[in-house]
């Protein structure tokens, strides 16, 4: 079975991603050094917190370049939550920041677009499948996943969104373009539906 590297760039709780992969019996390792990436078949880019601080860490630790190289070899990458947002060209979270640029599009704030709904969106929301992708295998339409975010991704190509969700406005819950995958929710925190997504990613 192929081995997944979980990128450690010093933000958030990546132990929970590792725990869920261990639970599923999927070979995985935490990757602390950017040059180690190339030895893996797939990588997961987790992340919580602020976009600006995260991309700075990725740059400083040399991950940005290595992740782009990894992607150019057509190897699968899964971004989770902020990790998904980092895959995009740019983000407007507290200013303007460049992302990894693996998916064309941008990251925008929910702010007044969602009227009186609480911010951040914290909790379980259902998804609607709007595309076909191996990562959606055995995931039922309308399944619930755990979301925690105040910003959302807007891919340039509509077809990049393969499942959407609704929080005052419709937004991309899961994206897939070629070898790049992203979930706005936390599959590692979404009980059995989330574990399905991780299993699908591991069997790509």
């Amino acid at each position: 079975m192929s081995k997944i590297g979980v990128i450690n760039y010093g933000v958030g709780n990546l132990q929970s991603v590792k725990n869920s992969l261990d639970f599923l019996g999927i070979p995985n390792e935490i990757v602390d050094k950017s040059q180690e990436i190339s030895s893996f078949d797939k990588i997961i880019l987790p992340g919580v917190g602020a976009f600006g601080a995260a991309i700075k860490k990725l740059n400083d630790l040399g991950f940005t370049e290595e992740i782009r190289k990894f992607s150019s070899q057509n190897k699968p990458i899964l971004g989770i939550c902020l990790g998904m947002q980092l895959l995009f060209d740019e983000s407007y979270e507290h200013g303007h920041h460049q992302g990894l640029g693996l998916i064309k599009g941008r990251v925008l704030p929910f702010n007044e677009k969602i009227k009186n709904l609480p911010l951040p969106q914290i909790g379980w929301n259902n998804i609607t499948k709007v595309g076909v992708s191996p990562i959606l295998k055995n995931v039922e339409d309308n399944s619930c996943f755990y979301f925690v975010h105040s910003f959302y991704c807007e891919p340039e190509k509509k077809t990049a969104t393969i499942a959407s969700s609704d929080y005052g406005i419709k937004f991309a819950a899961i994206i897939n373009e070629n070898n790049i995958f992203g979930c706005q929710f936390h599959p590692e925190k979404s009980q059995s539906a989330g574990l399905h997504i991780l299993k699908n990613f591991s069997s790509l």
Binding site: N13, Q15, N19, S20, Y146, E188, K189, Q191, S192, G194
Partner: peptide, 26 residues
């Protein structure tokens, strides 16, 4: 547990926060 986990009680410093998050608290 594969759902969100919150831990509290006795947290006074940023190191107390980090310690919990690094051990698996969301």
């Amino acid at each position: 547990c594969f759902m969100p986990l919150t831990f509290g009680g006795g947290i006074r410093t940023i190191d107390d926060v980090s310690f919990r998050i690094q051990n698996g608290a969301d």
